[in-house]
Design a binder for these strands. Structure first.
Length: 662
DNA sequence: TGCGGCGGCGCC
DNA sequence: AAAGGGCGCCGCCGCA
């Protein structure tokens, strides 16, 4: 692979606007670009900044590599940074040769499928000796890349050195990783195509929402300020609000939280709900808590993000999806505009037209922040003349878990799905509680080894309140009726332990397999799932863990960041519930990738514009909307060969805006 | 002023 | 048979 790394400068805020907007801005310039291949190294330097580089010829090995279509070109965050910089800046300003899109491979994707952190520094720290972070590097880049530019020759030479050093680090990192499998490269490209297409946002609505939110936020701040004599000046000051409430209600039980065995106080959503439920709550406290609650409902930042990230020409936000962003499951994650966590409860398209009309006329709104946050989803919409087609798989994880367990008891659950039954209702019957909502919370919270705590946490989100004793009884009954689930959890953990004890030998639990490679990334446990998915747990060990009986399996926790003075990367315990969950979500993520690949690579009406774990959104011209809907249904209801007998079900619908129905 | 830690939010 | 976990982003706050 030819490794590439750009250093650039621009007045555009890269973090805020993203690499694509950054690269397309005419003020963005290349400082230098490093190339590396098999130990050979060369640095392109912008002659405007490095006069001595004027007229310098490109080495033959670089030109040969660039002209050889069989040699992939890799950069760390190629998709989000180096590829757009190459296309929009370097090709124009410095005659860099045009590179076909399919030449790029992003080394971030390679890190992530290897279970490593995405950031270059972090990945290197995690697998290396945890050398301390070099803050001078970051400071140097800041000095030279953000106006006013430092242009001293010493600094510019230091940038070149820094760039070259990064390529050495990247080369070492890639040597330690396994490369992408063909199917992973395919899926990375599919995701890149979806990112390039983007999803359209209602910019006019977003602008109005930001305007209303700012006014409301200021109003809430003024009231808080007055009520508390200046002790609280914004609804976001959670520490000050917490202390204010504690001042009136010492040791308030609703606010008590335990973290790592340490008692703490919180003023989070559920604490506020419990406080407001108390009829005797002092009036002043009630006022403050209500104002905080109102303010926190907003998702103003997301509307601002839409304004920041959308292309002003076609109003589309691009580059929002991160391939294998979740290292432990290889699910997609999101960046910039967080499309994966928009509030579900939202207005219908008709209500949106009504509300937006009022907002454009500056008319007042009821419960402003709540109203605005319910406008978030519908702020995604198709281009004029198009429709959105939305499909989601119903209860896919509740189905995938028993399918992976592959036992007679688990088949019984799958038969409920096959018969078109409602697994939540069925579960409510099983635990002898006549309430579908409770059945749903049970299925969602207990499938991965969770018990009382997991149930109550989930119950809070669904407005279900039960006494602890009742929940304990539900847990016992559910586990007894669904004995296949505990059996599967413990089989997974036994298989993982066996695998670690016997390197290179594949161990099986249900449809899940584990194998341990002692030489790979400090000893890696691989989880092999149906359909060629490989989950990697690097630096796996069996060791004593605080607060736990016996020795447990532990591994690197890629999604955490090590503290500055840490001597080892943070770790996680691979207990049976986590193994079950990772396998299930990893398997479901594969089903999604297969569907996306079909939709993207096969001919047919409708283009993918968004996906959220169990949901796919297409955009299609109105005249083709029905055909696109049928196509989406066909793709989502056709099970890949490696998942035979899995009763997947989706009923896509046609919408004028993004919404909760799907 | 920039950072890192932490609390908080929301979804699957 | 104890234990929800998977994400990303925002804002505050203390520190350097």
């Amino acid at each position: 692979m030819l490794l590439v790394d750009f250093e650039t400068r621009s007045p555009v805020d890269l973090k805020r606007y993203g690499g694509r907007v950054y690269a397309m801005d005419p003020r963005t310039e290349v400082i230098c670009c490093g190339f590396r291949l098999d130990g050979l190294h060369w640095m392109f330097r912008n002659p405007k900044l490095y006069p001595q580089a004027a007229g310098e010829r490109w080495p033959e090995w670089v030109m040969d590599a660039l002209n050889d279509e069989h040699i992939p070109v890799s950069a760390h965050n190629a998709e989000g940074f180096d590829a757009p910089v190459w296309d929009y800046v370097a090709a124009n300003d410095h005659d860099f040769p045009l590179l076909a899109d399919d030449r790029w491979v992003d080394s971030v994707a390679i890190c992530r499928v290897n279970g490593l952190p995405g950031k270059l520094d972090d990945a290197a720290r995690a697998i290396g000796g945890m050398a301390r972070k070099d803050h001078r590097g970051a400071a140097l880049i800041r000095a030279c890349s953000i106006p006013p530019y430092d242009e001293t020759p010493e600094k510019l030479d230091a940038v070149v050195e820094y760039c070259a050093q990064d390529l050495v680090v990247l080369a070492d990192l890639l040597d330690a990783c396994r490369p992408l499998m063909d199917v992973e490269l395919r899926d990375w490209r599919v995701n890149r195509a979806i990112n390039e297409r983007g999803v359209r946002v209602d910019l006019e609505l977003a602008e109005a929402a930001v305007r209303y939110a700012e006014a409301e936020s200021a109003e809430i701040a003024a009231q808080l300020n007055q009520l508390t004599n200046g002790r609280i000046t914004r609804h976001t000051q959670s520490a000050r609000i917490r202390d204010f409430v504690l001042g009136h209600l010492p040791d308030c039980p609703a606010m008590v939280r335990y973290k790592d065995g340490v008692k703490k106080y919180s003023i989070d959503k559920s604490a506020r709900a419990e406080l407001l439920d108390d009829f005797d709550l002092p009036f002043l406290v009630r006022e403050v808590v209500e104002l905080t609650d109102d303010g926190n409902r907003s998702s103003v930042a997301k509307f601002q993000k839409m304004l920041d990230r959308a292309d002003p020409e076609d109003h589309r936000v691009r580059g929002a999806f991160v391939y294998a962003g979740a290292q432990q499951t290889l699910r997609f994650s999101a960046r910039g505009l967080q499309l994966h966590n928009f509030r579900r409860d939202c207005w219908s398209p008709d209500e949106v037209e009504d509300l937006s009309a009022r907002m454009y006329l500056d008319q007042p709104l009821d419960s402003v922040m709540d109203t605005l946050s319910k406008l978030l989803r519908p702020a995604l919409l198709p281009a004029p003349g198009n429709k959105l087609i939305i499909g989601d798989w119903s209860a896919i994880e509740a189905m995938a878990l028993p399918w992976l367990a592959n036992s007679p008891g688990a088949e019984g659950v799958l038969d409920v799905f096959r018969a078109g039954g409602d697994v939540y209702l069925r579960t409510a019957e099983d635990i002898r509680i006549d309430n579908r909502q409770i059945g749903k919370v049970t299925v969602l919270s207990l499938g991965y080894g969770g018990a009382l705590g997991a149930f109550q946490a989930m119950a809070r989100n669904y407005g279900v309140r039960l006494e602890d004793d009742v929940v304990r009884a539900i847990v016992t009954r559910w586990r007894r009726v669904n004995g296949w689930a505990p059996d599967f959890w413990y089989a997974l953990e036994r298989a993982a332990r066996r695998a670690i004890a016997r390197p290179y030998e594949i161990q099986t639990a249900g449809r899940v397999r584990y194998v341990y490679y002692p030489q790979h990334l400090g000893g890696s446990l691989l989880c092999l799932l149906p359909g060629d998915t490989i989950l990697t747990y690097p630096q796996v060990r069996i060791e004593e863990v605080e607060g736990r009986h016996g020795r447990a399996i532990t591994a690197m926790k890629a999604s955490f960041t090590a503290k500055a003075d840490a001597t080892e990367w943070p770790r996680t315990t691979l207990w049976h519930g986590l193994l079950a969950e990772n396998a299930t979500q990893g398997f479901c993520a594969w089903l999604l990738r297969e569907a996306l690949a079909r939709l993207e690579l096969e001919d047919g009406p409708g283009d993918v514009v968004s996906d959220v774990h169990d949901e796919i959104v297409l955009e299609a011209p109105a005249a083709l909307a029905y055909a696109a809907r049928d196509r989406l249904a066909e793709v989502m209801n056709t099970v890949p060969a490696a998942a035979e007998w899995l009763p997947l079900k989706a009923v896509p619908t046609i919408q004028d805006r993004y919404g909760k129905e799907g």
